[in-house]
Design a protein around this nucleic acid. Sequence first.
DNA 1: TGTTAGCACTCTCTTCTTTCGAGTGCTAAT
DNA 2: ATTAGCACTCGAAAGAAGAGAGTGCTAACA
Lengths: 360, 360
Amino acid sequence: MALSERKKKILAAVVDEYIKTAEPVSSKAIAETGSLGCSSATIRNELAELVALGYLEQPHTSAGRVPTPAGYRLYVNELMQRQKLSVEESEELNRKLNERLAVMDTAISDIGKLASQLTNYPALALTSNASVTVRRFDLIYVDANTFIIVALLSNNDVKNKYVHLPVSADRSLVQKLSTLFNASFTGITEDKITSALISATERAADDTIGLTAVIAAFCIETLSEVNSVTAYVTGENRLLSQPEFRDPDKAHKLMSYLSNGGYVFPETGAMQDVEEVRVLIGPENVAEELKDSSVIVASYDAGDNTKGLIGIVGPTRMDYSAIATKLGMLAAGLSKRLGGGEAPPEGMHNKLIIKGDDRS
Amino acid sequence: MALSERKKKILAAVVDEYIKTAEPVSSKAIAETGSLGCSSATIRNELAELVALGYLEQPHTSAGRVPTPAGYRLYVNELMQRQKLSVEESEELNRKLNERLAVMDTAISDIGKLASQLTNYPALALTSNASVTVRRFDLIYVDANTFIIVALLSNNDVKNKYVHLPVSADRSLVQKLSTLFNASFTGITEDKITSALISATERAADDTIGLTAVIAAFCIETLSEVNSVTAYVTGENRLLSQPEFRDPDKAHKLMSYLSNGGYVFPETGAMQDVEEVRVLIGPENVAEELKDSSVIVASYDAGDNTKGLIGIVGPTRMDYSAIATKLGMLAAGLSKRLGGGEAPPEGMHNKLIIKGDDRS
DNA sequence: TGTTAGCACTCTCTTCTTTCGAGTGCTAAT
DNA sequence: ATTAGCACTCGAAAGAAGAGAGTGCTAACA
C-alpha cells in the first residue's frame, strides 16, 4: 500500500497539472516538467500501476490520466505542498483581510461573500450559537400605546421590537413587567420559557391587555432565531466559470441545491475545532447532489460559545491547497477578531490542520 | 402604421406560440390554431409584411418567425390578453400570497424570494426610504463601560448598537447626552449632521471620553444605511432553466451582473406610482448586459414615505401577461399590508396599468 | 383584389464517414 | 530497471450526404 517515492511524485504531478488545465494529463507532460529524472515511457509504466491502484483513471484508452477521488484524497492527506506563504505574502493577505473586513460588516452573510470572492467558488457561511439567553430587558415607553422592547443577549447581540398596541397601557404596568421579565426571563434558554411561566408573570403584573404575551413571544422568537442555524450561500454563479459545469443542467442542479442551502455543512459533523480545515472529496459527501463536488470547510470561534463555519463548494478538481490555506486564514482572522482573542495571526499557516474522512 | 386587425391577430399568435415553445413559429402552425379563417399561404404573405415592418424576424430564410423587441413592445402595449383571472383564481392567488407572507418575513429579501418563486425568474427587490430621520433616542446604561444606543426612526424602524467603551462614563453624562441628542439630532436628515453640530454637542455635554462621537457616528451610519437603496437579488439560478441561457457564458454574464445587483432597477427611473407595472424589453434596457433580456417591475407603497420595487429579469421571450399580473398582485398585496392601507385587493387586476418606453 | 394550392428552393439539422493526432501499451535493446 | 521505437486505439474535428421544415413565388380561383 505504501507508494514508492516516485509514484507519489508522479501522482502529485498529475493532480497539480490537472488542477491547472482541467485536461487529462499525459506521461509526456509529466516527463517534461523535469522534476523526475526519467523518460515518459517509465512514467507510463508507473501511471498504469497508479490506475490499477485506483488513484487515477483514464477517460478512454488513448487519453491521459485524471485523478480519482481516492487520488485527490491521498494528494490532500500526504502529497500536496502546503502553501508556505512567504512572510510578505502572508502579510499581504492579512492586510487584505483586514481591509475587507473593515469595509464589510462582519455579518455572517458578508463573511460568506468574502470567502466567495477570495476563492472564486460559491461559499456558505453559518454560525451556531450554543444556548444564547437574554441577559437584560428594557422596555422603552414611547407613548401609551407604543413601546420598544430591547433585549441584550448573552452573546452581546441586541435585539429590539417596536410594539404598537390597540389599547393603552400605563407606565406602572410597563415598569412592573420590566422588573418581572428581568427577574425571571433572563439567563434562561428558550425551552425554559413555558406557558406556565408566562401566565404566572401575567398574573403577577396584573396585565389585562396582553402585553406580557407580546414580550414573551418576542423573547421566544428572538432566542429561537438566534439559536437556529441558518446557512447563507453566495456566489453560486461562480460555478459557471468552472469547465466542469459547462453543462447547464449539472450547474442548475447543484446551484439550486445550494440555494436551498444549509444541507451542505451538517455533513461535516458538529462544528469542529477552530483552525481545522476539513476537506470532503466527491463521494465522501453524503448528499447525492455533492457526489461529484468537493467541499472545503473551516471553522472559527466567534467567542461567547458561538462557532461559525465558512466553506466553499466546487468541482473535485480544485486547488485544495490554496483554498484550504485561504479559508484557514480567513477563519483564523475571524476567530482573532470576533473570538476570545486567543488565536494568533502570525505564522498561522504553519498550524493549518487538514482533515477529512480518510478511506485508505 | 396602423396594423390591420388580421396582422395584429397574427402577430399575437406568433408571440403567444413563441413564448410557449421557444421555437420559431411557422405559418402552418398559426393556420392550424384555426383562430383565423385563412390558409397558411395567406399567413405567409402577412408574415412577410410583419417582417418588413420590423415586428418579426427570421433566423434564416427557411425558418419560422420570431418576434423582435418591437414586436414584443406592440404585443405588450396593445395585443396581449390581460389575464382576466376568474374570481376563484384571484382569490386563490391572494390566499397563497397571504399564506406565504404570513410565513415569511416581510423583510425585503424575503419579498424578492417570494417574487422569484412565484414567477420562476430571478427577482430583485429594493426599497427606497425618502429621508428617514431619527424620531427618538434612548441610551440604555448597562454598566459604566457599556451602553446600548436605541434609535426609533421616523419609519418606525428601530435600530440599536451595543457600545463598549475602554473608559468608564458616569450616568450623568449618559443622561445629558440622551437629552441633547433628543433635542438636536431628531427630525433631521443625515446631511444635517455636521461636525459642527457634533462638537457643539460634545462641548455642551462636557464629554471628555468621546461617547458623543460614537453616538453621532451610529446615527449617521444608521440613517445612511436606511436611506440607501440596496437591491436584493434572489433566484439567479432559475435563469438556467430557460433555453435561451443554455450557453453557460451568456448565463454567467447575466448572473454575475445581477449578483452585483442594484443596477437594474434605477433604469426604470425614479420609483413609480404604485400599482403600475413597467415592462422593459431587450434593448430598451440601458445596461449593456440586459440588452437581450427583459425586465418587469412593479412598485408598492410600504407607507411612511417608503416605496419599494419588485421585479424580475428574464429572456425577452417571457410570458409578459402572466408575470405582469402576478407582480402587480404581489405589489398590491404588499401595499395593502405595509402601506397606508388604501390599496384595495379585490378586482385589482382590472386596474393593472402596464407601461414602458413605447417607441412606436 | 384578396385568397389559395402547388411547387421549387433554401437552409439547418442529423447522420455517416473520413481523417488526424495525441497518447497509450508493448517489445526489444541498453 | 530504464528507455527508444512503433503499432494501435479512440475521440475530436472536418467533410459529405440526405432529410425535412418552411419559405417565396406563381398561377389559378372567387
